[in-house]
Amino acid sequence: MKSPGASIQIKQKARELGFLNCGISKADFLADEKNRLESWISHGMNGEMDYMTRNLDKRLDPRLLFDDAKSVISVLLNYFPSQKQEDPDAPVLSKYAYGTDYHFVLKDKLNELLSFIQTEIAPCNGRAFVDSAPVLDKAWAAKAGLGWIGKNTNLISVEHGSFFFIGELIVDLELEPDDKIVRNHCGNCTRCIDACPTKAIVAPYVVDARRCISYQTIELKGELDENLKGKFDNRVFGCDICQDVCPWNLKSEPHHEPAFESHPKLLKLSHREWQEMNQPLFNELFRKSAVKRTKYSGLKRNLQFLYNTNETKDYASADQQLPEE
């Protein structure tokens, strides 16, 4: 097939569905990612995320993941909120977790895009991916020209910053791929590295998950690392620090996705109300949220770990300017 018109139609529909951007890649082997991924795992930087060690062949080659895969369609969905938590002393919740769990929202939109392709472009088989299989989201988005991988290992867009979710459709249609690669614009900036309170960014473009606050407060199932006690800067679920200080996030604008709006009570919670949170309140606030992943017991564990370490810094108000390149 490989019709430029089809790719244009798909991108137009993606914008209609509310995606920030959409790009297309040929489904192929990610040769540039192989050594990086294998080195990261060999040094144990995946921590207890054993799933990262499985299906490496499929993680690097979508043709092994989806029969007759020919194209990877990558999309970005904004989640940057218009409001933030009101109490500056309250435990800090990552912005991505304010509203409805993104897995459901993003997958529904991707499936709608797939239905459009099947009915308006050409009959095909396809599958939506939102953290649901061994797919290297950021690598595919970068390959599709949607941004570059920053020193904090997040995908960064020149137009939109980095406060967005990434998802994919893998289809058996041969679509016209995007041949533009966005060059790295980090320059000599090291704000993300310098700001990380646990020093999880152990080198430019390398994050040791074991030291990452997001890993500790979400992925880790047991006790939190006592060596990191007092270094969480009040983060109770996830962490946005390396994004908050990134100058490119001056480009971030509030999302327009109703599902990502927070529960009316959530952003008003005081420090004391967080500390006194019980199961019924947890159920009320996080019924549809990604916070359910850590469960009530996990959130209480995180809160207890933060006890007497509730000093906060307003990273987002730091003096920011785009880096010299």
Rank of each mutant, 00 (worst) to 15 (best):
E16R: 01
A69R: 02
E16P: 00
Y79W: 11
Y96I: 11
E38P: 03
D28Y: 00
S71W: 02
N55W: 07
T53H: 05
F66A: 09
Y98I: 10
D67E: 14
V75E: 11
V105I: 04
N35I: 04
D32T: 08
Q85T: 08
D101E: 10
I8K: 02
R54W: 14
F29R: 02
P88R: 02
L56M: 09
A31T: 03
R63Q: 12
E33T: 05
P91Q: 04
S42K: 03
P91S: 08
S42D: 13
L20H: 02
Q12I: 09
K70I: 07
D50N: 13
N46P: 03
G44E: 09
S71Y: 01
I8L: 11
K84L: 14
G47S: 06
L93I: 11
S71C: 07
N46W: 03
I41Y: 03
V75D: 12
D57E: 13
M45Y: 13
Q83M: 11
C22H: 03
S39A: 13
K26I: 10
K70Q: 13
P91K: 01
P88H: 04
G23H: 02
Y51N: 12
Q9M: 15
D61V: 03
I41L: 13
G18S: 04
A14F: 00
L37C: 08
F29Q: 01
E48N: 09
T100C: 11
V92T: 12
N35L: 10
V72W: 05
E38H: 05
T53A: 12
M45F: 12
P4Q: 04
T53Y: 01
L106S: 09
Y51H: 14
S94P: 00
Q83P: 01
Y98K: 07
L110N: 09
E86N: 09
L20R: 00
K84H: 14
N78W: 00
L93M: 12
Y96A: 11
N55R: 08
Q9T: 10
L60Q: 06
